[in-house]
Amino acid sequence: MTSRALILQCLQCALVFAGAPLLAGWVEQCRAWFGNRHGAGPLQPYRVLRKLWRKELVVAHAASWVFRTAPYLLVAAMIIAGSIVPLLAPIVPLAPAADAIALVGVFAFARMVSALAAMDIGTGFGSMGARREMLIGFLAEPALLMVLFTPALISHSTSLAVIVRQLTTTRLFLYPSMAFAASAYVMVLLAENARIPVDNPDTHLELTMIHGALHLEYAGRHLALMEWAGAIKLATYMAIGIALFLPWGMSATGSASGIALATGLLAVKMTAAGTALAAIETLLAKLRLFRVPEFLGTAFMVAVLGILVHFLLGT
């Protein structure tokens, strides 16, 4: 582990932390364009965060320390997740702390924390949001893990850094199983980030909310942190997808020029992925809540199919 790796790690943390709202803003902007609206510009999330920063902190009577520590824990968990995923080069020093399975675990931890925090207030909305979130969680988690198993089987390792190194160093190799994994991954990404076929991020009706209901009682800087955590989660999911399915262009050694190139490429890939996400959201309609198990069940089956194909074709 060299100082270069450390610098790289810091750079990545900063990039994930500071850049995540930009990605969220870009997705919103694209959705506005696709919906024939002007949109507020990709910088809007930063303005919202600044506004929330300054606002008074309002907390419900019944709230305990669980409610008040949750936003900090959530942001911390998301930053950890974001710094484990190889973003610019597969040599981050934090990578050994958690492999792909542990990464899924970190997301599960964050989900549990947010569900418990929502239940802490003791209103119907909060606990309803919590149970829906957990429902989606236990369905999406197996699918996500099956998605991650396919590259893990290809590279004989669950370490994301090893996987990415393996995928980038071999000659352009088309893994058929990865096609399955990729399509399942998109479905999981939509579900886990409260995106349209599963949850509507724009809704104002408490009874239809999933993710929103978890945030319902938060205000001021707590809410800012929750929003930020959501943005980092989206960015991390995008980063995982890019690392697994479009890893080309990452710097293998972490040289300065390589990193510069990788950063540029990452920006391009993220922009494209954000646009694609907005397009998917514009084209699809929200599913009824009890269609969601079907949606995620399909994602899971597709991912398992990827593993089967991997065994059959021996690649």
Binding site: A76, I79, A97, A98, H156, T158
Partner: peptide
């Protein structure tokens, strides 16, 4: 299979980042 898991680092980072925040 190369894979590792470092719970102490995860907890440390969790505590560190939230304390900093």
């Amino acid at each position: 299979t190369h894979a590792d898991y470092g719970p102490l680092i995860v907890l440390g980072a969790l505590a560190l980042v939230s304390a900093a925040l």
